[in-house]
Amino acid sequence: MRKLKIGIVGCGGIANGKHLPAIKKNGNFEILAFCDLVKERAEKAKEEYGTQDSKIFTDYTQLLKEEGIEAVYVLTPNKSHSFISVAAMKAGKHVMCEKPMAKTYADAKLMLDTARETGRILTIGYQNRYRADSTYLKRACENGDLGEIYYAKAHALRRRAVPTWGVFLNEEEQGGGPLIDIGTHALDLTLWMMDNYEPESVMGSVYHKLGDQKETGNAFGEWDPEKFTVEDSAFGFIKMKNGATIHLESSWALNTLDADEAKTSLCGVKAGADMKDGLRINRVQYNKQCVEKPALDADGVAFFDGEAEKDSDIEQTVFYEAVVCGKELVVKPEQAIVVTRILEAIYESAKTGKAVYFD
């Protein structure tokens, strides 16, 4: 299979922690250029993941002028997702953009409109869809095993794990805190399982209760209260047009022992499911309550070590096959834009104290 020639815009944490190692492992990509506002970061990424001929840029517009580049990875803070992705597609490049799709719904809509106008492929980095528990549960939902799903919870709770690096605490750059950072994953999973992308209304509550504290026991070290300009917790109640309801919970710091991240709980008329203790599907069978726990950590071969392929590895394969082989995307921009729209509505509802209604 031929190499897909790509450019990387943003060589920070998400690039080095997720995408670049997975791209290297995949073996079907050739990185022609690295771009970062900090030149040293781009040079370091080239040294580890590029070739001698890979180019270095500090201006993404110069990278987009490289005719050999077929696709661009947009791995920057949320604020710049939209304008870089739009420019890339207008330059004839396909785009893999990190989550969330954009800082605002208007920005996300511009991305979707540009993808449609240019015919370029656009996908968003919701890699939790590729987990073994997620793919199993998705098949169960598609098969109708749960029946109509009318109530769900989207879980994104941390007890004390506020990211203290980069621009995570900067509202201007990110658009928010845990809601837009990890709540976006939980909501994406939930909507995808329900196959329901038609919200009717949203009520939201946003809190900044712990950001001013010190000696926090934070997993990533103490944060600077002066720089903590985003919420530490946010919660949303989402009513769908078909009558279904979703409760979204997100926090980086919450006094709770019920911590779960990038998980969903579903309640259907035939059965329910959650990811609280591995994947569990609950139902009534032969007039008895029962719980099914599928074995997802092995291939069934005695000598197989059970280590599953990482979600981000699958994500790269799906993107490669969409661009090179014309296969269908798993994460479609038409779905990701609904996630952004709901998140924005939660923030808006929290500010006004009123429900946000959609057309």
Score class of each variant (00 low, 15 high):
194 M>N: 11
326 G>D: 07
277 D>T: 14
229 T>S: 12
190 T>Y: 07
122 L>T: 03
337 I>F: 07
338 V>Y: 05
150 Y>G: 03
96 M>F: 14
231 E>Y: 00
307 E>S: 15
260 D>F: 12
173 E>Y: 06
100 P>S: 15
225 P>H: 00
21 P>W: 03
200 E>H: 11
314 I>H: 14
342 I>S: 11
150 Y>I: 12
317 T>I: 07
164 T>N: 11
109 K>R: 14
105 Y>E: 02
206 V>Y: 01
246 I>W: 00
120 R>L: 05
211 G>V: 04
122 L>R: 04
288 K>D: 13
345 A>Q: 08
304 F>S: 15
339 V>K: 05
183 G>Q: 09
338 V>A: 11
332 K>F: 05
249 E>G: 10
305 D>F: 13
68 G>L: 01
4 L>I: 01
328 E>W: 01
36 D>N: 14
323 V>A: 06
216 T>F: 00
86 V>W: 01
29 F>T: 05
230 V>N: 08
14 I>E: 04
344 E>S: 00
356 V>H: 11
282 N>K: 12
207 Y>G: 04
287 N>M: 13
192 W>N: 11
62 Q>H: 11
85 S>G: 13
355 A>K: 11
111 M>W: 00
6 I>H: 01
27 G>T: 01
337 I>H: 09
222 E>H: 01
253 A>M: 10
215 E>W: 08
232 D>Y: 01
259 A>E: 13
133 D>R: 06
295 A>P: 03
10 G>M: 04
80 S>A: 15
243 G>M: 03
124 I>H: 11
278 G>A: 00
250 S>C: 02
306 G>E: 07
16 N>W: 01
273 A>S: 12
334 E>D: 15
149 I>K: 11
254 L>M: 14
328 E>V: 04
338 V>C: 10
202 V>D: 08
169 L>Y: 02
261 E>H: 12
225 P>I: 00
195 D>R: 09
118 T>C: 10
302 A>C: 12
161 A>I: 10
169 L>I: 00
287 N>V: 06
283 R>P: 08
289 Q>S: 15
180 I>R: 10
59 D>V: 10
80 S>C: 09
295 A>F: 09
15 A>V: 06
147 G>H: 04
299 D>H: 11
164 T>A: 02
118 T>S: 04
84 I>F: 11
221 G>D: 12
208 H>V: 07
342 I>D: 12
175 G>D: 07
218 N>L: 07
26 N>R: 03
308 A>L: 14
213 Q>S: 10
199 P>K: 05
123 T>G: 03
343 L>N: 12
224 D>W: 00
117 E>I: 02
351 K>D: 06
264 T>R: 02
166 G>V: 04
347 Y>V: 10
65 K>A: 05
